[in-house]
Design a protein around this nucleic acid. Sequence first.
DNA 1: AAGGTTCAATGGTATAGACCAATATCGCTA
DNA 2: TAGCGATATTGGTCTATACCATTGAACCTT
Lengths: 254, 254
Amino acid sequence: MDSVSNKVSGEPFNVAVPLYVQIAESLLERIRVGELIPDQRLPSERELSKSLNVSRMTLRAALRVLDNKGLLIRRPGDGTYVARPKIERQAAKLSPFTESMRSRGYQAKARLIIFERRLAEVSVASKLKVPVSAPVYYFQRLRLINKEPVLLETCTMPVYRFPNLETHDLEDRSVYEIVETEYSIVPHHSEQSLEAVSATDFEAELLGVEPGTPLMLERRLAFDKDGFPLEYGHDLYRGDRFRFVTEIAPLEMK
Amino acid sequence: MDSVSNKVSGEPFNVAVPLYVQIAESLLERIRVGELIPDQRLPSERELSKSLNVSRMTLRAALRVLDNKGLLIRRPGDGTYVARPKIERQAAKLSPFTESMRSRGYQAKARLIIFERRLAEVSVASKLKVPVSAPVYYFQRLRLINKEPVLLETCTMPVYRFPNLETHDLEDRSVYEIVETEYSIVPHHSEQSLEAVSATDFEAELLGVEPGTPLMLERRLAFDKDGFPLEYGHDLYRGDRFRFVTEIAPLEMK
DNA sequence: AAGGTTCAATGGTATAGACCAATATCGCTA
DNA sequence: TAGCGATATTGGTCTATACCATTGAACCTT
């Protein structure tokens, strides 16, 4: 069917993935596992393209993907280097919770309710764009402000993008913080929705409210720069504790 | 700005700006001055590259620049279109109701519950930036989809900006529609917030739900392009009928 | 040593050509 | 008329090649 799929390290994808994306993912993986470390110089474009048996332009397309992620430093006449991980706070916009709370000086903690490795069901797999039964991390966290529970968070993330996620501290850091600092993956955009729902007994118990109390349900699907899903989940906010401010502002045109 | 045409002249200088950047800037300018308008279809890549006397790959590099800025919509097999400005795209979110419903082919009606001319209290006056006791229109509408009530809308608007508002049809049109067509005022941006609340007896009665049912409360303050307030109000959505979609897409350039 | 020059290698740009998958359109069929 | 299928067109990808400006290091001069 597709003649290019295994040109670079056999990927378990059943769809036609462009060559340059495969190469980009391959390099991304090598960065993540530490085979390529920050400040390390990559082989030249001509060498790399030759060893990967692709044209230089295709190799450049792959490097551009990583460059757009901020993972590379490229200098004409010199070479291409692995960038040092950014500590920048860009993902803040995606996570109103930790951000807004910490900025107000509140203490934001999390209690891990459940952490599992599951096999993706059809609905989850289609959202995360992984094969059915692919391994995913599933976890729930109860988030607290000044020891008061205000948010029940449920996340599903693909294992192949976040290997050994369980080794990281999930009790004191936002998901996006971990994703960015530990995996050098920058959340780019997300599709979200908000609904008003009633608290179930389980949710009410955890959040310390009466069953049937109005909660804000936020469904979320976050992507990286190339449109690959990073996280699928939903958050339940206490209705009496949260207000979602959504200013709609004009755009500049330089 | 440098002309694209100097590519053939071959002077020893002026090589500072790459061709594809010149083309991108040229197109950006044409969009800015209105020569290219939103939703307009651009010539195909092959045509454009031919008319600009550059290779298709170079033209594509230029389009990629604009695409990364979110200024283009590109569809394989179809064509490349000028994206609607962010303002317009986001403006849809100002009125999720009429917009989303009509686009799905539903009939959207409204029942006027109350329409009054009031004198602005302090809180309202400060929001709308009118003097205390200035006249304002206050009205509530129950909005229906296929005769089923789903939204209770409350609006307060300054009389001085919308004289004779009562003469217009408030039973079948969105507020923003009236504001735009009758007063030639285009809502520019707004401050909104979303909360999950319990339905009061009054609200439950109108919306046809049980008291205490979760509702979505949207508070809203809309402004024109000069920053003057147009409308202050709040909407109560049936929690079981609405989902607020809020895509987050931070812009980035390279 | 100190400073300047040469030069090979690098990333950036640009071209021409080719094939592919998705899409719209139009004409044909039932 | 409604539905279907062939076809041309479009954007997406990939190759092979070429030239450019920048860089850094080896080399040379002083």
